[in-house]
Design a protein around this nucleic acid. Structure first.
Lengths: 206, 206
DNA sequence: CATATTTATGAATATCTATTCAAAGAATGA
DNA sequence: TCATTCTTTGAATAGATATTCATAAATATG
């Protein structure tokens, strides 16, 4: 490994440390209430140092989101691919996504609250990248549903793309109040089964 | 009408003007980007005047939300009560709520983005009032669904409260991306029918 | 009309925090 | 060891804006 490479690697590691610290801070205080000071302290760096790794606060936050979403999608796909059954794939998708939300509930509580709220000044690569990832993920889900339609598990008169849309919507809608602590009594898996029950019965081939 | 009463009435009218102006400003710029200066200009008052009618920015925003939600619920209930049919009540509920979202799309785009995002410092009456209204509304929907269960339109093995929860979630989930302009091609009524189709088939008594 | 009371004004204040940058500290290599 | 380069520091800066309050205008009163 060349000197240049080692330096790059070390730089990335330190950037990663800052991102981890930032995640904890943002998850606790929210984007607006969190200060660079807070992040610096959590990462055990000085304020100025943060700016050596991220151009500004927004970029730090957006980068964090991008990585988190990418990871969510990666985890979901990995689990889904473990089975070949079309219906089971859908079940695993729902379960895995809700589980990921649950495991990262502090992060997603902020994410769902402030993602759209912040009128991002920068319409740059990162912001676009998040959108692109979502579009691709939706396409992926659409394919799963189309497959289920082929296998006569889902009515063919329902457009798969719209269904993919409804399904992800239901997932977000389910988790948001849970994140807000309005229904913490519920186990997330129970909610999963409930949603899945309604969705599958709602779309099933008679 | 006594002098005191007239004064009170005038005060409320002026407060109402400020609220209307604030709604326009918040709907355009969002909570964080909007300044009291903006609101004052829109309402054609001086900055200081705003503070004669609201203690601070948060209170102004929360008051606005409270009224809007109250109005939404009022409108929905009024329409729902026009029919006696249990199934039709549900249809009207869904349709009316989505229509209200559509008619006030600028407001709700901000609302859904920043409602939870702002870590409200004040846990006061207004904030609590919004929550209470929602809880009552959920109870109301629960009753409608229970009624549909009695009439054997909906499976009895599904807990009505949870169903109410899922239904409102689906409504929010449907409208949020629409508000973000990600699917403006869709007419809102089409989306309504689609959601309703899935929900009702998903829960119907076989 | 003169006075008292209410209401509105907006410049000034106070606070907050993202961002910068000159200086200090570490690491490297000859 | 010493000079050079890379990295970190955190006090200082700059800009923003919520909130206040002394003053002015408007309105009511007798």
């Amino acid at each position: 490994m060349s000197v240049i490479e080692r330096k790059k690697r070390d730089w990335l590691l330190r950037q990663g440390d800052i991102l981890k610290a930032a995640e904890r801070v943002f998850a606790t205080k929210g984007y607006h209430k969190a200060t660079i000071q807070d992040v610096a302290k959590e990462a055990q760096y000085a304020v100025g140092t943060i700016y050596l790794y991220f151009n500004h606060k927004e970029a730090l936050y957006l980068d964090l989101i991008e990585r988190k979403i990418a990871d969510l999608i990666y985890e979901v796909k990995r689990e889904v691919n473990k089975t070949g059954d079309a219906k089971e794939k859908i079940r695993v998708l729902v379960h895995q996504q809700l589980t990921y939300f649950e495991e990262n509930h502090d992060f997603f509580r902020i994410y769902f609250s402030e993602r759209g709220g912040v009128r991002w000044a920068i319409k740059d690569k990162v912001s676009k990248s998040v959108r692109d990832k979502f579009v691709k993920y939706l396409d992926y889900i659409t394919e799963l549903l189309k497959d289920a339609q082929e296998k006569l598990l889902i009515r063919k008169d329902l457009e798969a793309k719209r269904l993919a849309y409804v399904l992800t919507s239901m997932l977000s809608a389910t988790i948001i109040p849970w994140l807000k602590g309005m229904c913490h009594k519920e186990k997330i898996t129970d909610m999963t089964d409930f949603i899945l029950d309604i969705f599958l019965k709602g779309v099933e081939q008679k």
